[in-house]
């Protein structure tokens, strides 16, 4: 396949994943701001930080209000990571690589774009927000379903998974990065009401507030949450899960093409490191240090894949 096509597929799925992740962050932020927080402004600021768009937001607004943050995250085309920008980018990439997609996948993306453009045509009020967020989730799920149901398991599919895994790992890591201090065992008021709010935010941001309880018998502590987000390979948004998804799909490429690339050494090293660590050694190393270096390496891996498979000339 063309290097450009691989790149287009990869970015299409990164953007789809991003639109969904942004919707999830909004959902968590909205809920906390609404129900728990005494300080909604700082909650929205933290959501904007996690989405990686605080700088751009600050250039536009001088206070953190729900209405502004929502609009910026959902609809603002000046924000390249807003849901609208992401779906627009995903669809543009899909048009570019259309010959590599099944009709079903192309139509699903095209319809998502039409549906979300309509849903996000005017500012989304609090009343309408739940329905809009549900629509975003439903649309991205439709695309994912079409991918799994209709696409050949070849190199094209591998690049869809690689895009998803990298974007998702980055998202989960950034959630941990922004809230890491609430996960430190040394935090003075463990188990306090404030902590509970923060922990719930984290779990909601990755849509895991229910599954976490199921898996951990309600044993909510910084260590169990961090362990779950980083190491639990049953949880599809954990760093470990994403890392394995990458390893698998890069592995399929190497097998298919009959050659390994530098990115394979990088993912092997990442897998090795995650295998040799557990949550207590992470805390020993320093959670913040661990997570910032993970984000850095994850980005480096993305760039290496772009280069190895000739996404650009």
């Amino acid at each position: 396949m063309l290097g450009k096509t691989a790149g287009g597929i990869y970015w299409m799925f990164r953007f789809l994943e991003r639109s969904e992740n942004t919707a999830r962050l909004i959902e968590a932020g909205f809920r906390i701001a609404l129900t728990r927080s005494k300080d909604p402004a700082s909650e929205w600021k933290s959501v904007l930080t996690t989405a990686g768009v605080l700088g751009q937001y600050d250039m536009k607004y001088d206070s953190y209000t729900g209405a502004h943050a929502l609009d910026f995250l959902l609809r603002d085309t000046d924000n390249p990571s807003s849901v609208l920008s992401s779906i627009e980018n995903a669809r543009t990439n899909a048009r570019m690589v259309r010959t590599a997609l099944t009709t079903e996948v192309w139509e699903a993306v095209n319809e998502s774009w039409m549906a979300l453009k309509a849903a996000l045509k005017s500012p989304v009020t609090e009343t309408k927000l739940p329905a809009v967020l549900a629509e975003i989730r439903r649309q991205t799920a439709l695309v994912r379903g079409a991918v799994h149901g209709t696409m050949l398991r070849n190199d094209i599919f591998d690049f869809t998974q690689i895009g998803i895994a990298l974007e998702r790992a980055d998202n989960t890591a950034r959630i941990i990065d922004v809230k890491y201090y609430t996960l430190l065992p040394s935090a003075s008021y463990v188990g306090s009401a404030l902590d509970n709010v923060q922990w719930e935010t984290i779990l909601r941001s990755v849509s895991a507030h229910r599954s976490f309880r199921w898996l951990n018998n309600d044993d909510i502590s910084p260590a169990t949450i961090a362990d779950f987000l980083i190491f639990d390979s049953r949880f599809p948004r954990s760093l470990s899960f994403c890392s394995r998804l990458l390893e698998d799909n890069l592995g399929y490429l190497a097998k298919d093409y009959k050659f390994r690339m530098p990115c394979h050494d990088m993912i092997d090293a990442q897998r090795e490191r995650l295998r040799n660590l557990d949550i207590s050694s992470v805390f020993d190393e320093g959670l913040h240090h661990f997570i910032t270096s993970f984000i850095r390496e994850n980005n480096a891996l993305g760039l290496q894949i772009e280069q190895d498979y000739r996404f650009v000339g």
């Binding site: 396949m1 063309l2 290097g3 450009k4 691989a6 190199d155 490429l253 093409y257 498979y309 000739r310 000339g313």
Partner: peptide
């Protein structure tokens, strides 16, 4: 931009 001259032919950049 997917194409280059390679060994006197036109070739496309693939993965």
């Amino acid at each position: 931009h997917d194409l280059q001259v390679v060994d006197g032919r036109i070739a496309m950049r693939t993965t």
